[in-house]
Design a protein around this nucleic acid. Sequence first.
DNA 1: GCAAGTTTTGCAAGCGGTTGCACAATAGAG
DNA 2: CTCTATTGTGCAACCGCTTGCAAAACTTGC
Lengths: 332, 332
Amino acid sequence: MAVTLKEVAERAGVSRSAVSRTFTDGASVSAKMRRKVEKAAQELGYSPNALASSLTTGRTKLIGLVSNNFHNPIFLEVFDLFTRGLQDRGLRPLLVNLTDEVDPANSVRMLRQYSVDGVVVASSTLPPGFAKAFRDAGVPVVHSFGRSSASPQVHVVGIDNVECGRMAARALMERGYSRVAFLGGPEAATSTQDRHSGFMSEMALHPRISVTCSFADAYSFDAGRREMLRLLKSKPAEAYFCGDDVLSIGALSAILDSDLNVPDDIGIIGLNDMEMARWENIDLTTIHQPIQQIVNSSIELMVSTLNEPDRNPEARIFPCSVVERGTLRPAP
Amino acid sequence: MAVTLKEVAERAGVSRSAVSRTFTDGASVSAKMRRKVEKAAQELGYSPNALASSLTTGRTKLIGLVSNNFHNPIFLEVFDLFTRGLQDRGLRPLLVNLTDEVDPANSVRMLRQYSVDGVVVASSTLPPGFAKAFRDAGVPVVHSFGRSSASPQVHVVGIDNVECGRMAARALMERGYSRVAFLGGPEAATSTQDRHSGFMSEMALHPRISVTCSFADAYSFDAGRREMLRLLKSKPAEAYFCGDDVLSIGALSAILDSDLNVPDDIGIIGLNDMEMARWENIDLTTIHQPIQQIVNSSIELMVSTLNEPDRNPEARIFPCSVVERGTLRPAP
DNA sequence: GCAAGTTTTGCAAGCGGTTGCACAATAGAG
DNA sequence: CTCTATTGTGCAACCGCTTGCAAAACTTGC
């Protein structure tokens, strides 16, 4: 079926090693030999079998790209950036969808069967145990969008969600709201927990302000809408920090449906600054998460770790900032 | 590093073949042998190396998932469905991002180096040449969301875009619009061409109705918005068939910005029915594309083709239907 | 033109598995 | 308890490629 090394060698009248060497860079081959081999390879349409060579080199250039966020549009951008970034460095993403998966063991086994060189866990909702399971299996791993920590157990690249919570609280305070609330994503997600605690810790500095909390059961439009509809039944807060942009948009839709006005009756600030947030029909005030930097840095960290597997776990945390749009009343 | 067949064999005190056979189903092993081997494997934490075995079996279970649509939210759903569907059948998606790629040769070479068993081209904007290039390289291929045809050259699964164009035209006629327009995506995409030609052919039946056309340069929010802003400078049509939902939303944003009302001043009908289309703050009337069926059918076709590589190319076309929401005035 | 030093090249073993073939072990029949 | 039919098992070759080692082929300097 496919052309092999051996056929090229025969055609060029040289040894198999010679052919192998012309296709591995850094190997010593004379110019004449290289010409002969390349000619034969050309004629036969040969290209080396990466899997076979991985057997002896121990490297596949395959990277597991593991996620469970397939309903948050920001992750389409994330996948775009990851696949392009990895490709550009000669790495191949093996995509693993962990929706509804609770046990890391299966994916660990599968990715080891395919001898991936490394794994990127790209998720803000997978528990840290997943990333650790890969590390324990001896696979280099980077957790992108994971929980920041001063002494991480695996490489983590992302944002400081606690600080984002504080930032949101400060934004609301600057705008003079006196009854504010946190509307979080799934309570089990570390990102929700951290945003919540940051928000509360900042609000603790303003004891006169009333603060309430509730949680949607997913980072999704429907969950946000449902939760906000529920909140609107009793007296809602003046402004909400929503755990995520999709959630915010769901909440917005509920508010608009109830004939209330944003930002006059209720203010919303989201988190992520996904592409859609700046669409004029949405125009969401939100906290920008620098996903491009996060992804690039993750890839860079992955590549370094491949070359130096015993590198100590590292946390790379990027700063966020408030993007002023139309869903919060202006600061005075 | 990783445990190998040989170590398991030694520990269990049996031959390597015996171990291999207990891990390939359909092979003949006695119950006693199986127990011994499984015990040893368990203790050592062995799991077979899929890549090594592919060398002799000729099957990797790797499927190239090739796309260039990383900015249309509907493709997040598509990737979700594909990855889960493939995983469920024991296949592994190797994701290839073809954004900005014009020459299929590179990806063909790369996917052959990784000995993928098959390739799914999931894109409505990649030219048919890409799918054909894989076929020519002897790799089973399914083009999802490709151009429908009575005698396809490769397997195609998708919708009849010409018919969708007609359907949109009929929807506008039923609602009594007298000046309508087509606002398409990139002119080079076969999907745009087909939707356009269907729309025009149906409109040819209504010679009294004025019809105009224009094209955005991508299936994206920005492109739709930009094009609609341009159209609004001179006298716009009463209703637009937009080539796609994201495009529609871009157009909507332009319209709302210009203090015009939808659907009273201008009507919009989209195509795809992506998740967002039903979000209350968008509420887009659109044509539903059954992506779940398309993806499942694509996977099913892929699997059949793997078992029977010489199968004739087949087109599987699924019907679409108008989803009535708020961006078109109601039919009388 | 020769010795010493420097590439190049081929050989052969190995990477982790699978599998046809021949032989061993067991089962079934009488 | 034989004799045949049916599994079950091990040997060894092979899948496509890499690489340490030693020999072959070049350089270079004198």
